[in-house]
């Protein structure tokens, strides 16, 4: 690659983790709100709530780490972000993230604090915060796209549909990471937190429903994402000038054609999408039961998460090597 990247892996990681974190939060909230007392729903909701913060947190740290001021040793120069507010997506984004932490922390807390689970004394707060969380989750996910989308100088990014793409991908990776966590906890039969906070017995009520709902949603999301990717690509390809020039990075022979088509589209979307479709189809057309097994528990989430990362990677890198069509 002949140019230097202005934004490197840290920013890729940030966009990916923040998106996935937001997605996890949305998953958590929606699981909670439709749990109707079923502990499996509640458990998944808890996982989502608890992992969201660290995910976004790490992402934000990566962002700060990438700051020129930080690298030059002005560790706290980033505070300047909070000395002003303007219409810069990054300014709005920073404030948004602040809100996000303020809202998510108590929400997560309501899952952690000692109580009798489902219907403990935190329930009302938990439910109210769940609505807020959905709103914030979506905003953060969308913002990661707007951040890149705001610049005509980056024709590959400068597309309204990019935010949409990131939103869908965020939720899908969010679901994946929640399922993955569930699997991980099972694997390590990791029950000390439950004992420590004497969380109420983690029975498995409605587990298959919960996983079914997630699988179906994810299938739809992946379908949607494929659609969005298609539109993103085709419209860029069909227009003229800078954008048409820029999309060449993803076209055959383009610098990032491989990672984009194989990594993002095939590994990240088509394969997991197909697997899930096959899995949920019987239940979907009402003859048969959805069984949540090893593949959907582990393989799909891993594929989806990998795809989600590669998506951020090809977009961030591609947007910087895709150049304007003239001077």
């Amino acid at each position: 690659m002949e140019q230097e990247l202005i934004w490197g892996l840290p920013v890729v990681g940030y966009l990916f983790l923040a998106g996935m974190g937001a997605g996890a939060l949305i998953t958590s909230a929606s699981m909670l709100l439709r749990s109707h007392g079923r502990s499996a729903f509640y458990r998944l909701a808890r996982y989502g709530a608890i992992i969201s913060l660290p995910l976004v947190g790490i992402g934000v740290f990566l962002l700060v780490f990438e700051l020129g001021s930080f690298q030059a040793g002005h560790w706290f120069r980033w505070i300047n972000l909070y000395k002003t507010i303007n219409l810069s997506p990054m300014s709005i984004g920073s404030w948004l993230l602040l809100l996000y932490f303020f809202a998510t922390a108590p929400y997560a807390l309501t899952f952690i604090l000692p109580g009798n689970g489902l219907n403990d004394k935190w329930k009302i707060w938990r439910d109210r915060l769940a609505y807020v969380s959905i709103a914030l989750g979506i905003s953060v996910a969308v913002y990661t796209g707007v951040l890149l989308g705001a610049m005509p100088a980056r024709p590959l990014w400068n597309s309204p549909i990019l935010a949409m793409l990131f939103l869908v991908s965020s939720i899908s990776t969010g679901i994946a990471v929640v399922l993955f966590t569930d699997w991980l906890v099972k694997l390590l039969n990791w029950d000390w937190p439950a004992r420590y906070f004497n969380w109420q017995n983690d029975k498995n009520e409605g587990y298959s429903d919960a996983t079914y709902i997630l699988a179906v949603t994810d299938t739809l999301l992946i379908g949607l994402e494929l659609m969005v990717v298609f539109l993103f690509f085709m419209y860029a390809h069909l227009t003229v000038g800078h954008v048409e020039e820029a999309i060449k990075v993803f076209q055959l022979g383009g610098e990032l054609a491989g990672p984009f088509w194989i990594g993002v589209v095939v590994i990240g979307l088509l394969i997991p999408g197909l697997i899930e479709l096959i899995k949920v189809f019987p239940a979907l057309i009402g003859n048969g039961q959805y069984v949540h097994g090893g593949i959907t528990m582990l393989l799909v989430p891993i594929l989806v998460i990998t795809g989600g990362f590669l998506l951020r990677y090809v977009i961030v890198v591609g947007g910087q090597i895709a150049r304007l069509a003239g001077i």
């Binding site: 202005i6 934004w7 020129g68 930080f70 120069r77 300047n80 610049m151 910087q320």
Partner: peptide
């Protein structure tokens, strides 16, 4: 300036 490089991109 915090060196976020957003302006460089823009």
């Amino acid at each position: 300036c915090i060196g976020c490089k957003y302006c460089i991109q823009a």
